[in-house]
Design a protein around this nucleic acid. Sequence first.
DNA 1: CAACTTACTGGTAGCGCTACCATCCTCTTT
DNA 2: AAAGAGGATGGTAGCGCTACCAGTAAGTTG
Lengths: 342, 342
Amino acid sequence: MSKPRSRRGGGRPTIADVARKAGVGAITVSRALREPGRVSEDLRRQIQAAVDELGYVPDPNARALASARAEVFGVLVPSLTNNVFAEVVRGIYDSLSDSPFRIQLGHTHYSGLEEERLLQVFGPQRPAALIVAGIDQTPTSRRLLETAGCPVVQVMETGSDPVDMLVGFSHLDGGRAATEHMIEAGYRRIGFIGARMDPRSQRRLAGYRAAMETAGLFDPRLVTTTPVPSSVPLGRELFRDALAKMPTLEGVFCNNDDIALGVLFECHRAAIAVPKTIGITGFNDLDMMQSAFPSITSIRTPRYEIGRRAVAMALAAISGKRPEQRIVDLGFELKRRESTAR
Amino acid sequence: MSKPRSRRGGGRPTIADVARKAGVGAITVSRALREPGRVSEDLRRQIQAAVDELGYVPDPNARALASARAEVFGVLVPSLTNNVFAEVVRGIYDSLSDSPFRIQLGHTHYSGLEEERLLQVFGPQRPAALIVAGIDQTPTSRRLLETAGCPVVQVMETGSDPVDMLVGFSHLDGGRAATEHMIEAGYRRIGFIGARMDPRSQRRLAGYRAAMETAGLFDPRLVTTTPVPSSVPLGRELFRDALAKMPTLEGVFCNNDDIALGVLFECHRAAIAVPKTIGITGFNDLDMMQSAFPSITSIRTPRYEIGRRAVAMALAAISGKRPEQRIVDLGFELKRRESTAR
DNA sequence: CAACTTACTGGTAGCGCTACCATCCTCTTT
DNA sequence: AAAGAGGATGGTAGCGCTACCAGTAAGTTG
């Protein structure tokens, strides 16, 4: 006889149940939960009591449908097994853990097409914000981002033409700084070793090249790259290749720390003295760099901070007050260590 | 004059638009998309044409509300910066990339309370399945999992009493195998070095202890642990501590590869011969283990495969046919390398 | 050939919530 | 004291989709 409460819902309390128990309208419950300031102290308390007693939790799906906005941050990174992005993602999570926002993560596998596909999947969900790695989206992806109807933060790089907002640092400057440091340290025949060679690695290479050319030291035979995903074993291999190509090599700037570690291990194995015979510089400064023997010079990148900052900017934009700075350059820091102390 | 299509929706085509264009009922469109087999060839084609022309994409939020089931996998891991879980998560993503399921990831930060909180957040979304790391949930978490109303897969361990399904391997056996290997290799005063000491590390320690006791070699002073998160620098520190406590140490079984690498670096720095003076065994077998100099013995764990298998089991359960095997032990493999070749 | 399946297809009625607008109070202002 | 402003509250009408059930046409059975 009583109304057959929710055939599908499984009997969880709804906002109507709370409203009835608190003796108010459903919409007032909704408001009390979302904008407490707009409901009187009295009702707010009454409603809270009813919520607690019933164990009411709003249905995020219903909420998303009614408001045409899901409390979800879409996050797109190339890879999660790459420690670098894992840290950015960690910064994002940490910044969002006290908010109502959930996180939906996607891997592009360094593929523009995959990125497009994921954006197409994310879009219909109407996320509250999108955070994507890099600035080299395909035209389609860029259009999808522009028409997403939510704040967009591109991360990991700097540039002058973000879709919306941008937080990162200059990989080109990082590559240049690393190379200049090695030149100053007295190395001359400095090689570049790079795996994966995604756009960020390309820019590091460009920075390396700029520094080498400025010093009149550039030689294409010094450059060893591969599209293969980066790993420590690959670092060893590439270094062997580089050395075979150019036996008089004096040092290498590696596009990341995994490669650098591989180079170090190969030097150990081949009894090549580091930093005396070969100098090594990495990129990102994972914590193992400082512990290695010898410790490895690297470019410290603000990965965690990038994640935090991206969320802060997105959150500001969501609440209406767009940050005055749409482009934030968090910089990097050269960590001089034993591996380049000639 | 014409009906003011969707004040909130932003003008994206709806299922009604497709139905009108294809000259069929909305429900038939819905069916054609979800269960093509139940719609005649003719209509299916017509509907597909309308979908393509309008660029219709179903609204996942509306879908979730109407069906009381979101196409989302909830995934709970302790940490993402830990390479081990990153690989499990990668396996999950790879297995789900061709499915309609999205992934919602949560970090517990190795905290039971945080896990409870996340489960409370995930629940109301009505996920299609839940994948959680570990079997040591709090009673509250366990109840939340049991009442989630969807398949649940616990991963990373084995055990006899899963909430629903379980994929992993035995950390205890892994710890024992690593230790037995070192004993066989001729080491006697074998230490255990462990950071973080989450339940899985505890079980590895238990395995170490069992092997040592069986061989009559156990001594509590051989065990060095800390709740501090694991890292390479920490591995160095802990090894120094262990050595200070027990200068006659002959080898160490490390609770993971980061620690092992730290130990190796410290040995290099202190000019301690590996494997002659000190033997080293790690756990997980990250790819840098094989590249290290000397290469480091480790227990290879099927992390990626665990992720894939977990998804496969969840998918099977969703489609009604629960796998006959609710508990899957994927085992591990001892990788003998130079660091224990006395 | 009536009765009964077995495909298909569609209408109706929500899912649980919020946007929009109306209403009802205060409390100011002139 | 009338008019206006502003805050608090509620009713109504969906958001876009799918569960449920009904209905129709075609094939099957005795």
